[in-house]
């Protein structure tokens, strides 16, 4: 049932100031046809987690744990095998289209390049296929857009191109890192709808700070804080009844829920707080929270929480 199983994943960056523990013991499963949302504040390690599944992290990084995709540990594959998976079964939609698209190549050619690599089509057939794909992601006038340069398209259209490129290899798993960042509300909504549609028969890890978008598209949500997961639950249950104090704080800081911020700031990933990493900012903090590090606890309805309130 599980398509991807992440076990005790650690990703550490050695830097001048110390070791940045960007991902620190994450366990996470993605089922077939599941859309899993990963939410959390800036710098908590979401992008690094996504990148490490794709093995796009630089080589000086210290990585430990297992990322098992269909019975194969991605972390122990050879570079060649990994490249095949990256362009084929797993695809990524990146945070910023303006920097991920090559500004001097027409968008059609950029998409064609990926499909020609994987499907061995000739130039003409590839072009036809690209136009079809652009139509699939609802780019208006695809015959014309195929010959545009990225800067001639609006932010929303660029994002559509990114999605088309990710779909080119017909992947089973898509990792989307903030695909709606910097887009307008109205455009954002269209992109979310599109993503929901194209992922109907696929799995997706949807990384975002946009709780609204996550609520709309995801089946389940994982909440990340300072390199670890704090809560894992279905969308409905987490939005109606967040269990972890941090999840509750995040939801309450939404404008439509009264803009009540969480006090304090997120910790540096070099020296995270002792005990529960959230305790300096937690309103429910108890004696034990300062001393012991809570484990992820499975509750009976399938939810999991890392907090002594539920231990």
């Amino acid at each position: 049932m599980n398509l991807l199983k992440i076990k005790a994943l650690r990703v550490y960056f050695p830097t001048d100031d110390g070791i940045v523990k960007a991902v620190d013991g994450v366990d996470l499963n993605i089922k077939r046809e599941e859309i899993l949302g990963l939410i959390g504040e800036t710098g908590c390690g979401k992008t690094v987690l996504g990148m490490s599944i794709m093995r796009l992290i630089q080589s000086t990084t210290l990585t430990d744990g297992e990322i098992i995709y269909k019975d194969r540990d991605l972390l122990s594959l050879s570079d060649d095998e990994m490249r095949k998976i990256r362009g084929g079964e797993i695809a990524m939609v990146l945070q910023n289209p303006m920097t991920s698209l090559n500004p001097v190549i027409r968008v059609g050619e950029q998409i064609a390049e990926t499909i020609r690599l994987h499907q061995g089509l000739d130039k003409k057939a590839a072009r036809k296929r690209v136009i079809e794909m652009l139509r699939d992601v609802r780019i208006p006038d695809p015959e014309k857009s195929v010959d545009s340069y990225p800067h001639q398209l609006s932010g929303g259209m660029q994002e559509r191109v990114m999605i088309a490129m990710a779909l080119a290899s017909d992947p089973e798993l898509i990792i989307a890192d903030e695909p709606t960042k910097g887009l307008d509300v109205t455009v954002k909504r269209e992109i979310i709808r599109l993503m929901k549609e194209v992922t109907a028969k696929r799995s997706m890890l949807f990384i975002t700070h946009d709780l609204g978008a996550a609520a709309e598209i995801c089946d389940n949500i994982a909440v990340m804080y300072a390199g670890e997961l704090l809560e894992h639950a279905s969308v409905d249950s987490i939005f109606s009844e967040p269990l972890h104090p941090y999840s509750e704080g995040l939801l309450n800081s939404l404008p439509e829920r009264g803009l009540k911020p969480i006090r304090g700031i997120s910790p540096s990933l070099i020296d995270t707080p002792q005990g529960c990493r959230f305790h300096p900012r937690c309103d429910y903090a108890m004696e034990i929270c300062r001393e012991k590090h809570p484990e992820m606890v499975k509750l009976e309805d399938g939810r999991a929480v890392r907090c002594f309130l539920y231990a």
Partner: peptide, 12 residues
């Protein structure tokens, strides 16, 4: 350009 939780602090 800020996170939801930080946004709330600044707006307040």
């Amino acid at each position: 350009a800020l996170d939801v939780s930080v946004q709330a602090q600044i707006l307040n």
